[in-house]
């Protein structure tokens, strides 16, 4: 495992239109192969951090370097899996067509090449869903759809994989297999996983990135009940209080009210 830093965030501040910053004074360095879990309460800034890493948002202050460049230029090396409920569940599209989208590039002009198809087939194979290739995305279970979206992220041939809640709605009984897959992938790639599932992050990653306006790093081995309480007790309250608000935010991605409401 080399120690080359692939994510370097320095003194980052970000706020939506509200007076309260969503993220403040964030410093974070992730090295190659150092897979980490991003945890924290709803409204704490997990999604915002993810969007900043993808270059979909720009920080007011501070710098983000990914693979030594800015997030937008780094996009070709980054695979991203969104939460599947953000997508239209009834959309008429096949699994193979979804995964092929991972091979899209700037300047792509219409047709997928044989190489693109080979990469997509390998990604399906990797996720153990090659048999679903010709099925409709709409006919799959929640867990299967998540595997398809991870396969699509893998089809980007990424060096960094960003997964947003990959264990939500996972099929009962499929968890072990799913963890084994992620375990295998994390040996080849650097994976950042946003998750509410503390049990999952605790066993699957070495490093925890706790996001609640500020960012703190914890070694997963030292992450005990006290630490969890410190981060989450406040968080539980906020989930209850601002549930509707936060749902709205994740849908649109634009949340002028949210920054305020979630920090009240």
């Amino acid at each position: 495992m080399s120690s080359e830093p692939i994510i370097e965030i320095k003194n980052l501040y970000f706020q939506y239109d509200s007076s309260q910053p969503t993220l403040e004074n964030v410093c974070l360095t992730i090295h190659r192969g150092q897979s980490a879990g991003i945890i924290g309460p709803n409204g704490g800034g997990k999604s915002t951090l993810l969007k900043l890493l993808l270059g979909m948002l720009t920080p007011q202050r501070g710098t983000i370097r990914i693979f030594g460049t800015d997030p937008v230029s780094a996009r070709p090396k980054v695979g991203y899996m969104p939460q599947y409920h953000q997508l239209d569940a009834a959309f008429p599209i096949s699994v193979n067509e979804v995964v092929l989208q991972g091979t899209l590039r700037r300047g792509f002009w219409g047709r997928y090449s044989a190489e693109n198809r080979r990469v997509a087939a390998a990604a399906l194979e990797e996720m153990g869903i090659a048999h679903l290739a010709e099925r409709s995305f709409a006919d799959l279970s929640g867990g299967q759809r998540q595997r398809v979206l991870i396969a699509r992220a893998l089809a980007c041939s990424p060096e960094l994989l960003l997964l947003d809640e990959p264990t939500a709605n996972i099929d009962p009984g499929a968890e072990e297999q799913f963890y084994a897959t992620l375990d295998r992938l994390s040996r080849k790639l650097t994976i950042l996983t946003v998750s509410h599932d503390l049990g999952f992050v605790n066993r699957e990653v070495g490093l925890l990135i706790c996001v609640n306006r500020q960012v703190s790093l914890h070694d997963a081995a030292d992450f005990d009940q006290d630490t969890a309480n410190r981060i989450y007790r406040h968080g539980m309250h906020m989930i209850h209080h601002n549930h509707a608000c936060f749902c709205g935010c994740t849908e649109t991605g634009e949340n002028s009210e949210c920054g305020e409401a979630c920090h009240d």
Binding site: L54, M56, R75, P76, V78, Y80, P82, Q86, L87, D88, F91, I93, E97, V98, L100, Q101, G102, L104, R105, R106, G107, F108, G110, R111, Y112, R152, C156, G253
Partner: peptide, 23 residues
């Protein structure tokens, strides 16, 4: 017909398509 795959990607998940560099 020319941009079918781009149209499909943008219609299905425009955010992801943008991350891949699709216009």
């Amino acid at each position: 017909v020319l941009f079918f795959n781009n149209l499909l990607a943008v219609s299905f998940d425009s955010c992801f398509a943008e991350l891949r560099g699709v216009r």
